[in-house]
């Protein structure tokens, strides 16, 4: 068999390759360089081997930040996914309410991260913020500046406010694609509200929900701007998530070797978890369907 080679194809691919090279590959190599060397400025480098990585993996500070990060992402997913599904189920399917709801849902997604942080930073202040001051007047001892728990609640609620819409919109898209006949058949079959959700709506939302969970996980695992604006990682280190810690280390303390090692480990964790998530989620619901060979007949 003869194949025609057309080298013009490369012309179309090269710009992308160059872009990826400069935006991802070269910066990543710099990080790799820093992670295995030590420098005291003046462009002088000394080989450090795996010392930075060993330091990092043994450091309590990294363990704590990592643990905080998992806790945060876990809480975020546990709240935003069920809440998003619930809101999507409650949204109207037709009529004037649809555009209204869609716009309302899209609004938080349009606000830049640091603005969201600023909004909540002011909103929660005990002296002038609507939320903080109201709570104070109601006698609730709320202060995100000094109380770690209050700081966590503020950061979590802020993220829920900012990002639940994304889950809602994706789920809603899955829901409206279900033909009316499914609901009618379910009514005739005497299915309960729960059964309709479990056997019709959830299976149809399955794919978009997978995307939503993946996006929310990756995003929340990399969160930086909003908690940085609101709490700056405090009080103490209680809201210092991985990326905040990383920036502190790299820019605050100028521990470039440590920070570079941490960046790589951080990157690998996200890559690994996303891959595991994706494989597990796409295989859910397929495992029992693989008996294709056994049925015979049609």
């Amino acid at each position: 068999m003869e194949r025609t080679w057309n080298n013009k194809g490369w012309l179309f691919v090269i710009p992308v390759l160059v872009l990826v090279l400069f935006s991802a590959a070269i910066p990543l190599m710099t990080v790799v360089n820093y992670s295995v060397q030590d420098t005291f400025g003046n462009n002088q480098f000394f080989w450090a081997g795996s010392a930075w990585f060993e330091d990092l993996l043994a450091s309590e500070r990294f363990h704590e930040a990592l643990w905080r990060q998992f806790l945060f992402s876990g809480i975020i997913l546990a709240i935003e996914v069920p809440l998003g599904i619930a809101v999507a189920l409650a949204m109207p399917r037709k009529g004037w309410g649809v555009p209204v709801c869609l716009v309302l849902m899209a609004l938080p997604l349009l606000i830049p991260w640091n603005v969201v942080g600023t909004i909540w930073q002011i909103f929660g202040r005990v002296d002038i913020g609507l939320l903080g001051h109201t709570l104070f007047n109601l006698g609730v001892d709320y202060n995100y500046v000094s109380d770690p728990l209050d700081a966590w609640i503020t950061v979590v609620v802020m993220d829920v406010w900012h990002w639940t819409s994304l889950v809602v919109l994706l789920c809603y898209a899955g829901l409206v694609s279900i033909p009316e006949a499914y609901y009618q058949a379910a009514r005739i079959d005497g299915a309960s509200r729960w059964a309709v959700f479990r056997y019709i709506q959830l299976p149809k939302m399955h794919r978009v929900l997978l995307i939503a969970i993946l996006l929310r996980f990756m995003d929340s695992f990399m969160i930086y701007t909003e908690p940085f604006v609101v709490t700056g990682g405090g009080p103490g280190n209680s809201t210092t998530f991985l990326s905040i810690d990383l920036v502190k280390m790299a820019i605050g303390q100028f521990d470039l070797g440590n920070a570079a090692a941490m960046s790589l480990v951080y990157f690998l964790i996200i890559l690994l978890l996303s891959w595991v998530f994706y494989t597990v989620m796409t295989n859910v619901g397929r495992e029992t369907g693989s008996g294709t060979g056994s049925g015979g007949g049609r």
Partner: peptide
């Protein structure tokens, strides 16, 4: 013959 199969694959 297909009682055990998933309905979606039919």
């Amino acid at each position: 013959d297909s009682l055990k199969r998933k309905a979606s694959n039919l």
